[in-house]
Amino acid sequence: MDLQTFKQQILPVQGRLFRLAKLFLRNREEAEDALQEVLMKLWMNRHQLDAYRSVEALAVQMTRNLCLDRLKTRAGRPMDDGALLENLQAATVSPYRQTELADSAGLMMRFVDALPEPQKLILHLRDVEEYSFEEIEEVTGLTVNNIRVILSRARKSVRENYLKANNYEAGH
């Protein structure tokens, strides 16, 4: 693959790779760093890229793997999200704190972030990036049925956490 084709096929996908990196790494600079690294890796291997049916799926996989590696080697980063969820569920949350925590955007980010893999990845690919199930299949290697199940779990999980945070009963 030459530079021209590379530019045409891969650079337009930058946004998706960046958002995926930001999802995992939670930090803009680190996400841009990761994106830079993935682009270079793809470039170094450009001669092998022609053999792939979907270079985008490959790029997404590479980004996810890179991010997971980065997370592993991140030493001593405070995992405050678990504690936050506990606080939300505790009866002793003050009204002031409730209002504070009801900042939807921050809340949603935390709930999605707290999801286990592969729920987090699949939810992101579907609900943020609007990938088809076939595209998600290509990236994850999971079957479409499996993906639906995981997606369902993720969506329900996010909703339940949100309802708890807003102090509603989640019963139906």
Partner: peptide, 26 residues
């Protein structure tokens, strides 16, 4: 109303873009 939050969040997140510096540095 309480179903709205996730959809809003996903739409907002979609608006995030890398800075142009990344592309030009590459």
């Amino acid at each position: 109303k309480d179903h709205a939050a996730p959809f809003q969040h996903y739409t907002d997140f979609r608006q995030e873009h890398p800075s142009p510096a990344v592309g030009s540095r590459f």
